Amino acid sequence: MTDVHDDLSDALPEVDPDLLELAGSVFADADATGTGLDTALWDNLEQTGLARLAVAEDAGGSGGTLLDLAAVLVEAGAYAARVPLAETDLACRAAAGAGLDVPAGPLTFALDRAGALAVAGDTVSGTLARVPWARSAAAVVVLTGGSVVVLDPAAATVVEGTNVAEEPRDTLTWDGARAAVAAAPEGAAGEFALRAALWRATLLAGAARGALARSVGYAGEREQFGRPIGRFQAIQQQLALAAAEVAAGGAAAESAARVVVRDGIAAPTAELAVASAKVRTGEAATAVARIAHQVHGAIGFTREHDLRLTTTRLWAWREEDGTDGQWAARIGELVLAAGPDGLWPLVTA
Rank of each mutant, 00 (worst) to 15 (best):
A242P: 13
A86R: 00
G339A: 10
T311N: 03
A243E: 14
R318I: 01
L128W: 07
L128R: 04
G264I: 03
V158E: 08
L53M: 06
A242T: 11
A155I: 02
G217R: 08
R113V: 13
R214K: 15
S25G: 03
R231W: 11
V55I: 13
P153I: 02
A32F: 07
E223S: 14
T173A: 13
V347N: 00
R330S: 12
A277M: 06
A180H: 10
V149K: 08
Q326S: 11
T202Y: 04
G250W: 10
A337C: 02
R93A: 15
V347H: 02
G220Q: 08
A234R: 14
V158Q: 01
L346F: 04
A120D: 15
R178C: 00
L151T: 05
E21M: 09
A284Q: 07
T171W: 04
A244H: 13
G97Q: 09
G105Q: 03
D3I: 06
R222C: 11
L50T: 00
A179D: 09
Q233L: 10
R178W: 03
E304V: 15
G24W: 03
L69C: 08
R280C: 07
V279E: 07
V149M: 02
E21T: 15
A247T: 14
E21C: 08
G63A: 07
T311Q: 00
A205L: 09
L203G: 13
A110P: 01
T35L: 14
I265C: 10
G210K: 09
G176I: 08
E304K: 10
L90W: 05
D170K: 02
V72F: 05
A96P: 03
